[in-house]
Amino acid sequence: MNLSVIIPTLNEAEHIRSTIDSVRTSGPCHEIIVVDGGSTDETRAIAARRAQVLRADRGRAHQMNAGADAATGDILLFLHADTLLSKPALASARRAIRSGSVCAGTFRLQFQPSTPALRFFAACTRIPWMKLCFGDRGLFTTREAFDAVGGFPKWPVFEDLEMATRLANHGGFAHLSATVTTSARRFQRNGALRQQLHNLRLWLHYVAGTSPASVAHLYRYDEGRG
């Protein structure tokens, strides 16, 4: 089964090279598609030397849907621009899909650099609960399932959690033990406790069913903050 990796970007020159390289070292990959939302740094130039680069309207949901439209793989893997795949990740995703028992899944999370608090936050991703399936963990799905649920909802926030839930309801969801490593830059910039309390505030809005548009101002996806 061919696997396409789709990476939304916005001013990610610092991370995109390492992210693409981690995909290539993780195993065979049919194609890597970087979908840029209007970077003003060198993101597109760096990515173009290593992957196919597209442009789309700013916003992860728009960018990931555009990447999926262009992808030709049987499996689609959506990866944040500051997140690195581990070497077993791609093979683990393929095995899960080939088992026939699921149509989608995600990985466990690690942070780099790490701290005791961040190791605790990462350990929570061992819990197989759909409401913890954030996009920075990586999300993979079959093309058929992606099309069946209509792609990512065009929401300014929570599109990752909602997409994972819709996929699980469509055809089963795998919580893999393989890991991805995401940048701890937000925690470093804002403080681990302060950032996690902010994340919790947003998450509770999602659980409560708050309109994504009404809380979009609380989440910024810009200037390398994706």
Rank of each mutant, 00 (worst) to 15 (best):
E162K: 03
G27L: 05
S214H: 08
R60M: 12
L161M: 08
V23T: 09
D74A: 14
S86A: 14
E12W: 05
L79T: 01
Q63S: 12
H170T: 02
G224T: 10
A117N: 10
C29K: 07
I75C: 09
F120C: 10
R98H: 12
T165A: 15
N11V: 05
T43D: 07
N169T: 11
L200H: 07
F107V: 01
R126H: 09
S86C: 04
G105I: 00
R50I: 02
A45V: 11
V149W: 05
P113E: 13
G226P: 02
V149S: 05
G171Y: 10
R44P: 01
P8I: 02
D136P: 02
L3H: 07
Q52P: 01
C133K: 01
I75K: 03
D74M: 02
I46L: 13
Q63A: 13
S99I: 03
G172S: 08
T40K: 13
R60K: 14
K87C: 07
G226E: 12
D74L: 01
W203R: 07
D136N: 15
A96P: 03
R60W: 10
R185M: 13
G100P: 11
C29F: 05
A145N: 04
S114M: 11
I32T: 15
V207Y: 02
Q63V: 06
T179G: 00
P28D: 13
S177V: 12
A45P: 00
V215S: 08
Y206L: 00
I6H: 07
A71F: 04
M130G: 12
R189L: 14
V180H: 04
I127P: 00
S214W: 02
G209N: 04
G38T: 05
A89R: 01
M130P: 05
R44V: 15
D82Q: 02
